[in-house]
């Protein structure tokens, strides 16, 4: 057949099919794998979802957001408040909606900041929410922590898997959409993007709140596994750093990069922490350094190197 369009579509659908098949295979995990691997995979999927949603916004725009823990925490508190009266999928959506609303409000005032300034602002948001929740809890509720209803590890697993699937699809569609193209344009040069008529604020705001939806939803699901939470646990800045690290490690310019980064990171950590509890940080740190030095464009950069398209396409080191 001489129809190039169809050929192209078929070619494109191959990786699509592979990923779909992998996800479907993972869905049967509770049937054939051990009970613990279901628990472990929920954690891996949590990291994958967080780093993927991080990369959805930060990847193309170059805005490094450390607000992941803030939105994750909002989801956690959603479950703490409503966990006893709502089913898990409803909690998931509620957590996502609350996160998006907050992200929208925060984004509206902060997205004019650039570079590290934006990063610091988002980091501050985590601490601010932590202390705000702590203050309201101690002042009005006379408590510090809350117990969270439990739904069982298999339910948690399927909810997380559904979330990841939806997120992969959303991220895929976003990259293809006009908004996605506009985000990349912003990453290359925000001023130029504005010049050619892109409403940069609206585009950034949309992507920022969209990406925070998944973070909140993930928080709402995972909280049910933790049984007890307090502001320090819910708003833990490690949950901002880890997904960012995983995404950069995996490579943010590929759709599946963050997912690969999350899987490699989480599996590596699990092995080290259970086998070498007193040495795991040294080994983990050393592997991280070596990995960056020997594969600077992330895990996915190993597969196919393509010329990086960045705003500052200037060599840094000549001496």
């Amino acid at each position: 057949m001489g129809n190039p369009g169809l050929r192209l579509d078929m070619k494109k659908s191959v990786p699509f099919a592979i990923v779909a098949a992998a996800l479907a295979a993972v869905a049967f995990l509770p049937r054939f794998a051990s009970a613990y691997s279901v628990v472990f995979c929920s954690s891996v999927i949590m990291y994958a979802a967080l780093s993927l949603s991080y990369a959805m916004f930060s990847g193309p725009t170059g805005y490094v957001s450390l607000a992941t823990a803030a939105f994750f925490g909002v989801g956690i508190y959603t479950s703490a408040f409503f966990g006893k009266s709502l089913p898990l999928p409803a909690l998931m959506i509620a957590g996502g909606v609350f996160s998006s609303v907050i992200a929208f409000a925060v984004g509206a005032i902060t997205l004019r900041l650039r570079g590290v300034y934006f990063t610091i602002f988002t980091f501050g948001l985590v601490e601010l929410l932590k202390h705000f929740v702590l203050w309201t809890e101690t002042t009005f509720a006379g408590t510090r922590g809350r117990t969270v209803a439990s739904f069982g590890s298999v339910t948690v697993f399927y909810c997380m898997l559904a979330l990841l699937t939806a997120l992969l699809l959303a991220a895929f569609l976003l990259r293809r959409s006009r908004v996605g193209k506009a985000l990349s344009a912003i990453g290359e040069s925000e001023d130029a993007a504005a010049h050619i008529g892109i409403n940069t604020t609206a585009v950034k705001l949309l992507a920022f709140s969209l990406s925070s939806f998944a973070m909140g939803a993930a928080g709402a699901v995972m909280a049910t596994r933790w049984a007890y939470i307090d502001p320090g646990i819910a708003f833990n800045s490690l949950m901002s750093f880890m997904p960012a690290l995983m995404a950069i490690f995996g490579g943010t310019d590929r759709l599946l990069g963050p997912v690969a980064g999350a899987i490699v990171f989480a599996a590596l950590e699990e092995q080290l922490i259970t086998r070498f509890p007193s040495l795991y940080m040294i080994i983990f740190g050393a592997i991280m350094i070596a990995a960056i030095l020997f594969m600077p464009s992330g895990v996915t950069g190993l597969i196919r190197r393509r010329p990086a398209k960045r705003k500052e396409d200037v060599p840094v080191g000549d001496s």
Binding site: G62, V64, F241, L245, I248, F249, F284, G285, A286, I287, M288, I289, I292, L293, P296, S297, A308, R310, K311, E312, D313, V314, P315, V316, G317
Partner: peptide, 17 residues
């Protein structure tokens, strides 16, 4: 890493390590 944006991200990762 010849690209400065990439260098900053990677340098931060290395310092995490």
């Amino acid at each position: 890493t010849r690209v400065s944006g990439l260098f900053e991200g990677n340098a931060m990762l290395v310092s995490f390590g």
